[in-house]
Amino acid sequence: MAGTIDSGAPVPAGLPGRAEFRQLGYGVALVALVACLPLLPFANSYLIGIVVRALIFIALGQAWNVIAGIGGQLSLGHGVFFGLGAYGTGLLFNDFGITPWVGAWLAAALAGAVAVVIGAITFRLRGIYFALATVVISLAFEKLARFYFALTGGDTGLAVNFRGTAPAVMQWREPEAFLWISLAVVLAFYAVTRWLLRGNFGLALQAVRDDEEAATSAGVNVYRTKLLALLLSAAMTALAGTLHLQFYLSIDPGTAFGLSQAIQIQLPALIGGLGTAGGPIIGGAIMILLSEGTNVASSRLGLDGVDVLAYGIVLLLIVLKAPVGILGYIKSKRLQRSGRAAPAGGGD
């Protein structure tokens, strides 16, 4: 125990290592590349559109990662918050003329309020109640959106009144502006994730994820911590929902609240690395590349429909090969090489 003499000197804390500087370099280069994409000679609306789709997808993954990855609370129905963001912004604009620049925040606040109600009911209970409640509430909102067609447009969905290129209401004919906005959102969400992984609130949240009982014994207010994390995650998800709405200019109940959407939201973090800052980014990028790649390949080969199958198979292979996500896989390989046991996940 304490009597044993330890060989290694304590590592000075807080100093970034060489690897971290290199990672920072890659990150800056990648951001610069994405931001300058429209300037490149081969860039066109199609390519930029794919990148925008990827960025929105990544933002959703980052938002879900906050409550599920860092907080360990499995939300199977995050479509609720996505849908509230999209519908909220759209309805505020169409019916009240409120610009999405403001509407986005109001919709995020609404999503946050719904999140607090869900959390207040389910977080006092242990076990799967939270996960179940999110599914049930998703389904309920999908039905509501279909039923109140006078307000929501029902099954056909909600179409945003289009005014051409009008930056004041977050509308453009060309996708470049969305590229920059989505990139800014992804960067902001990345910063939020990094803060959670390092800061006091995030530390409490990770403690709750790792061992709820030990966390409460250590003085963490578990209920309040989970509630705040869900509020944050829901608001972030709603902001990504606004982006989706403004980019596509329409939303329908299935896309907004459907379970398939809720599952899509979970994939970037699961594929890339749950509870990590880089995971949703890597996972989201890979999935969009994969879905575009298989799509193009299958239509070239005249094998329509095979793309979805191929996409599913590759995802399955990743999950089988790297159950802790791509970043978790790389980390455990690295640890194996340095001769230590592989952790179950975590880190950034």
Partner: peptide
């Protein structure tokens, strides 16, 4: 309270 069975936070 130090609960039974080394209840540490494994990923921290």
């Amino acid at each position: 309270h130090v609960p039974e069975g080394r209840r540490i936070f494994p990923n921290l």
